[in-house]
Simulated assay, not measured.
Amino acid sequence: MDIRFSKYTSFGNTFIIVDETRTPLAGDEQRAGFARWALNGDFGIGGTDNVLYLSEATGPADYVFRIFEVDGSETLSCGNGLLCTAAVLRREHGGDQWRVLTELPTGRPRPVQIGAEGDGRRTWVDMGETRPVPAELINRNGPPPADGIDRISGLDVPGVGELGGYLTFSGEPHLALFRGHGLPDELAEKLFIDARGAIGRPDGDDITESVALAHHIGTHVNRAYRDLFPQGVHLNFARVEGRRVEYRTWERAINCETLACGSGTVAMAHVGRELGLLPEGEIEFWPHRCRWYQPGAALTVTSTESGYVVTGQPRLVCVGVVPETSVVPETSVPPDLARVPEPRQPSIR
């Protein structure tokens, strides 16, 4: 059977979405193989972060949401992916609210509510409360913290210095480093650069150096501290101005910085409130790197009785059909990140 797909973007996070209620796949081997092929920029579709698969659910949900990486592995969840899913369901199936199952690889599937407003150009996802990072994703001493935040210090990064952050779980493990709270002011200035003159052509020397710096930090932390974060960790660099947070995100599994991150905004909203940096209510999040291309890019995170609701504006890029014969099964998987020994280990408080 030919595989039909939609391609969506949410602030530069891009997804190939396969609706298995209309194009059922044979199983996880085919899902993994299609993801490896589709996300390959040379032989597949390319230009995309992940492949999302939607299928009908039974029990307490309407649909099952699954997300696969470029190496064919399945990851847990994705805020911007869920925003795009709401747009797909609105366009393909109608309605304005759905309950979807996420986080299947944990063995503890979690239902979340998603919805679309008006013509579906504005969508939302109720991410609920943040939680302590599951035991399989962190080697901590002692029980999980009551406020859901592990304090991480002593992250030594060559050429950068010592960093610290606040680790919580919002469908993915996120380490939030706020300016003045684990992220030194001097380093923040290098990460959050004035790129107004480079909008639409973000390739100047300052931008190149800033991108290399973010990649260096994210890559080193995920390599050097693999014993602490056995399956990797997202890094969120953030600075707060009033009710606005400007941020950048380096993502595990993809092993690079992406233009935006929906689940990361929820983690930052929670940590920011606990640190006294952010008030309750609605907070605007600016994806710094995405705004080099789209100056108005922003989503909102609102604290509610049920937790945190993320609202955004995903966009349909294209729809297409892939002939099944085009997808060549790939059996090779990139090797796991090698651990680089360090003289010191960070502490969890």
Score class of each variant (00 low, 15 high):
T9Q: 14
G12H: 01
R22E: 13
L25T: 13
G27W: 01
F34M: 00
A38P: 11
N40F: 03
G47D: 00
N50L: 05
V51S: 07
L54V: 12
E56S: 14
E56W: 05
T58E: 13
A61P: 13
V70R: 15
E74P: 15
L82H: 10
A86T: 05
A86C: 04
G95K: 01
G95S: 01
G95C: 01
D96C: 02
W98N: 08
T102K: 02
P105V: 01
G115N: 02
D119L: 00
M127F: 08
T130C: 10
V133L: 02
N141P: 14
P143G: 04
P145F: 03
G148F: 02
S153P: 11
S153E: 02
L155N: 09
L155Q: 06
G159H: 07
E162Q: 11
E162C: 11
E162S: 15
G164R: 01
T168H: 05
S170K: 05
L177Q: 06
L177M: 13
E186D: 12
A188Q: 05
E189L: 06
I193L: 08
G197A: 06
G200C: 03
D205P: 15
I207R: 10
E209H: 13
S210H: 07
V211C: 12
G218K: 02
R223I: 05
A224M: 02
A224C: 07
Y225G: 11
D227M: 04
D227C: 05
L228S: 12
P230L: 00
L235A: 09
T249M: 06
W250R: 12
R252A: 10
I254T: 15
G264T: 05
G264D: 01
G264C: 02
A267K: 06
I283P: 14
E284I: 14
W286M: 12
H288I: 06
Y293P: 08
V301N: 07
V310Y: 05
T311M: 03
T311R: 12
Q313K: 12
R315K: 14
L316Y: 09
V327H: 04
P335Y: 01
P335H: 04
P335T: 04
D336P: 13
L337Q: 09
A338I: 10
R344D: 09
